[in-house]
Computed example of a mutant assay.
Amino acid sequence: MALPALSLSLQFGRFDGVARHRAALPRHRVTRWIRHALDIDGEITVRIVDADEGQQLNREFRGKDYATNVLTFDYAQAPIVMADLVLCAPVVAREAKENRKTLADHYAHLLVHGTLHAQGWDHETGDADADEMEAYEIEILAEMGIRSPYGK
């Protein structure tokens, strides 16, 4: 089965250690990770930001005053997926270290997770939805040879 087409804009803010994050996110890998999570063609911007920008966006759009790992801004789910995925580099790096995962594998998981959100998946609507989304993430990542981010 052919994967959906993807028009990708990959952006990096200016922050300490940006080179490490660029190295973990070559365009071909980011494209692959997102395409595996898409059900239909997509136009997606991925922006890697520092803690200040991540916190500001989370506060402004979700009313939560802290930097989170990934924010999804979805604009359309048909006829194509249109979304922005904003990932906070310091949070992603800290979580990868705490969970003994490579930075690249953690980014892969969060990009799959954000892409599913952009298509209407929501783990905050109940335990059954959370379990279903988690199982689908595990399946998508396994297709690409990435172990389960949930230790299962």
Rank of each mutant, 00 (worst) to 15 (best):
A89R: 04
L87S: 04
A104K: 07
Y75A: 15
H36I: 01
D105Y: 04
H36T: 06
Y107E: 00
I44W: 11
L103P: 13
T102S: 15
T68S: 08
H36D: 10
V91Y: 01
A108L: 07
V112E: 10
L38I: 14
C88F: 01
Y75Q: 08
A108V: 13
G42L: 13
A89E: 14
R100V: 04
N58L: 11
G42D: 11
M82L: 05
L85H: 07
F61S: 01
A93F: 05
V70L: 09
L110E: 12
L87M: 11
E98W: 04
V91G: 07
Q56G: 12
L116Q: 09
F73E: 01
C88S: 15
L85A: 04
I80V: 15
Y75P: 00
L111F: 10
T72C: 13
L116C: 06
N69Y: 02
V49R: 13
H109I: 00
A83V: 06
H106G: 00
T45V: 09
A83M: 02
A104N: 05
E95K: 13
T72D: 00
G114I: 13
H36W: 15
P90H: 06
G42F: 13
K97V: 12
Q55D: 00
E43F: 10
G63K: 06
R100G: 07
L87D: 03
D74C: 07
A93C: 04
R59I: 03
D74Q: 09
A93E: 15
L116P: 11
V46P: 10
A83P: 10
I48Y: 12
V86D: 05
V70E: 09
T68R: 00
G54D: 03
R94M: 09
M82K: 11
E95I: 15
I48F: 15
A51W: 00
V92N: 03
H109E: 06
N58P: 02
F73Q: 04
D74L: 01
L38R: 10
Y66H: 13
A67K: 10
V112F: 09
Q56N: 08
V112W: 03
V112D: 06
F73S: 02
F61W: 15
G63Y: 04
A83Y: 01
A104D: 09
A37S: 05
D74T: 15
L110H: 14
R62A: 09
G42S: 04
K64W: 13
D41N: 15
P79Q: 09
T115L: 14
D52G: 02
Q56S: 14
H113D: 13
I44E: 01
A108P: 07
R100M: 03
V86E: 08
L71N: 12
D74P: 03
L87N: 02
I44S: 02
Q55H: 10
G54K: 14
Y107W: 02
V49D: 14
R100P: 03
T45H: 03
L111E: 06
H109V: 01
R47K: 12
Y107C: 00
I80Q: 04
D52L: 12
Y75F: 14
L71R: 08
T72M: 09
T45M: 06
E43Y: 13
Y75N: 11
L38G: 11
